Amino acid sequence: MTRETKISEITKEAENISTETYFDTQIVKFKKNDMFYYIAFKGRSTRPSYYYFLSEPNREESLNITKARIKSNHEKKVKYLENKKIESDLISVGTILYSSWGYEQTNINFYIVLNRKNTVVTIQEIGKHKEFEGRDYGTCTPNINNKIGEPFQKRITKHASIKINEVEDASKYDGSKIHWSSWY
Rank of each mutant, 00 (worst) to 15 (best):
M1D: 07
T2P: 06
R3Q: 14
K6T: 10
I7E: 11
S8V: 04
S8H: 15
I10T: 00
K12M: 09
E15I: 15
E15T: 14
E15D: 08
E15A: 07
N16S: 14
S18P: 01
T19H: 02
Y22V: 06
Y22K: 10
Y22I: 09
F23G: 02
Q26E: 15
Q26N: 10
Q26L: 14
F30H: 02
K31M: 13
F36A: 15
Y37S: 08
Y37R: 04
Y38G: 06
Y38R: 06
A40N: 13
F41N: 00
K42F: 13
R47E: 09
R47M: 09
R47A: 10
P48H: 00
S49K: 07
S55Y: 07
E56S: 10
E56Q: 15
P57Y: 05
R59Y: 00
E60H: 11
E60G: 03
E61P: 02
E61D: 15
S62L: 00
N64W: 04
I65Y: 09
T66H: 10
T66A: 14
T66W: 07
K67G: 03
A68G: 07
R69N: 15
N73H: 12
K77T: 10
K79P: 01
K79N: 12
K79H: 14
Y80I: 06
Y80T: 13
N83I: 05
K84W: 03
K85D: 07
S88R: 15
L90D: 09
L90N: 12
L90W: 08
I91L: 08
V93G: 03
V93D: 11
Y98W: 04
S99D: 04
S99M: 14
S100E: 14
S100A: 10
W101L: 05
Y103K: 13
E104G: 10
Q105D: 13
T106A: 05
N107S: 05
N109A: 07
F110C: 02
V113F: 01
V113M: 05
N115Q: 10
N115A: 12
K117A: 11
N118Y: 09
N118M: 12
T119Q: 11
V120P: 01
T122P: 15
I123A: 00
K128V: 01
E133N: 09
R135L: 05
D136I: 08
D136Q: 10
D136C: 11
Y137Q: 02
Y137P: 02
G138V: 00
T139W: 04
C140L: 09
N143F: 06
I144N: 12
N146M: 15
K147W: 03
K147A: 06
G149H: 02
E150W: 08
F152H: 07
F152A: 05
R155C: 08
R155D: 13
R155V: 15
I156S: 02
I156H: 01
T157R: 03
K158V: 02
K158C: 01
H159V: 02
H159F: 13
A160P: 00
S161M: 13
K163S: 11
K163D: 09
I164T: 06
N165K: 01
E168C: 12
E168N: 04
A170R: 07
S171R: 14
Y173Q: 02
D174I: 06
G175K: 04
W180G: 11
S181Y: 01
S182Y: 12
W183M: 11
Y184F: 13
